[in-house]
Each structure stands twice: as C-alpha cells, then as structure tokens.
Amino acid sequence: MEQDFPYAVYPSLDGRVVFITGGGSGIGESLVRHFCAQGSIVTFIDIAEDASRALVESIKSEGHRAPDFIPCDLRDIEALQAAIRATQEKHGAIRVLLNNAGNDDRHRTEDVTVAYWDDRMAVNQRHQFFAAQAVRPMMRDAGGGSIVNFGSITWMVGDADCPAYVTSKAAITGLTRALAREFGPERIRVNCMIPGWVMTERQMRLWLTPEGERQIAERQCLQDRVQPSDIARMALFLAADDSHMCTSQHFIVDGGWV
C-alpha cells in the first residue's frame, strides 16, 4: 500500500522541462504525476494512447499543470527524436530526461529468434542512447541537465526467465557510465535507476502469485512492497539540483533484494 508521509519538495524542479518515456502507466505514470506535482513542465511519450490521455485529464483535475502527451513507438528513433525536438520548440530546453520505457515479457532461450532479440534491444535499451543523444545539445547550451536511465535488478540476480531483457538492462549500466564520462564536462549528469520488484498493476496482475509473495518475503530486507512512488521519489532527487554531484552511479530501490 502507498503510505502517507510528508515528502520533499524540490524548488529547482519548479518550471523545469522534463521528458519521460513510457509515461502512460506503471512506474512511468508515477513519474509523470510526481514531476507535475513539483511544478515541472512535463512531456511524456507512450504507445498506450487511451491510458495516457486519461492520465493527462486526471492530473489536470487535481489542479496541477497538465503534462503534454505525444503518442510514440520509441522503436521508431526518428519519431522519438522528433518528439524531443517538438518539446524543445514548445517549452525550451529539456533539462531532465527520464529513460523509463521498457517491457519485461518473459521468454525462454529456445524460443528466442533473431527478430525477437533485436526487438527486445529496441524496446528496452536502444532508445535510451538516442534520446540522450537528442537532449545533449540543449542540456549543454542550457548549462547542464540530468539524465536518468532505468535499469533493473534482474541482471544483478540473473533472472532465468527473460534473458534478452536481462541483457538489455545490464547494458544500461555500461551506457550510463560511458555517457556520464563523456557528458560530464558539459555539466550533464547521467545516472542509472535500478528498481526492484515494483508493484505496478501489470506486475500484480501477471506475476504476483503466492509463490511470488513468498519470494519477496525471503529476499527483501524490508517487508513493505516497493511501490511506483518509491521509484518516482528517487527520480525526483536525481533530477533536482540537490543531487548536483551525483553522476555515473546506479541507485537501487528494491527493499534490499540484492
């Protein structure tokens, strides 16, 4: 269950332009809601148009500045980078990029084809590089920015039921460190968020079985369930000026699973 605590407000995020991939549901939805609540100018992309438009209306009804939603399949890199350019043209330089989008469908090694493997890399990893490539010049010219790439603890624990996904998420740690070193002189910070088993609607519907509950009880140090909001609050910190000397790191939010 979500818990009612007084959480931080980050003045540096008020009015800051933020771009979020996969913002229509799950962790992405929570990211959109939390950054809008901070007063950020948020644009998000997703392929789920109905859910995304409903999210925009929900945030508007709560009295926050409504985010912009751009329908986009981020496997189409030209469309992704066009959405980034459109955001800059409308709102100014993007100062925060949250590379959140991904898909952890289960699969077995013997069933993986070349086409499926390439698609998993496109869905989970390739777009993160090209989104960072697109925002870099505007962040540099604006005096800096924050890029948060989203990984997963699956590569740390070696999950056996999704090898292509595990591979793509492991690659994000290397990508993060390489970009942090290259972009650092331009005051662009690049970090990797590594969520544990987050209780999104999809995870609970597909995989939170009694066996899964027992696994959480055995593996997590903390017995509360990791919520999308737990990930969003760490992302707020990494996006804000409060973390201005944090870069080239991975930040694990998993209740102590690994």
Rank of each mutant, 00 (worst) to 15 (best):
D242G: 02
I70Q: 12
Q203K: 09
R177C: 07
C246G: 01
P6V: 12
V166R: 09
F251M: 11
Q3P: 00
M156L: 15
G102P: 03
Q215F: 13
R75H: 03
A131Q: 02
D230I: 09
N99H: 00
G143A: 06
D105K: 13
Q220S: 13
R33E: 14
R126E: 04
W155K: 01
C192Q: 12
A235T: 05
R120Q: 15
T247W: 03
I94S: 08
I252F: 01
Y10Q: 01
G28S: 06
R65M: 13
K169Y: 06
V112F: 00
G28K: 06
R106C: 04
M204P: 00
A122P: 02
D46L: 08
M138L: 10
G24P: 02
T87I: 06
A122S: 14
I77Q: 08
G143E: 02
D105H: 10
A101C: 10
R177V: 08
V32E: 06
S30E: 13
N191L: 05
G151W: 05
H34G: 01
W117C: 10
V190M: 06
D4T: 14
I188Y: 04
I47M: 14
L236V: 08
F69Q: 04
T113D: 01
H127Y: 00
T21M: 02
V9P: 00
Q220T: 12
I153M: 12
V114R: 14
L74W: 06
I77M: 11
F130E: 01
F35W: 03
V123D: 04
F5R: 14
R177A: 03
G39L: 08
L238I: 05
M204L: 13
V9R: 15
I47P: 02
R53H: 07
E89Q: 15
L98G: 00
A240Q: 03
A240Y: 07
E218H: 10
C36I: 03
G255K: 07
M193F: 04
A122M: 06
Y10H: 09
D224I: 10
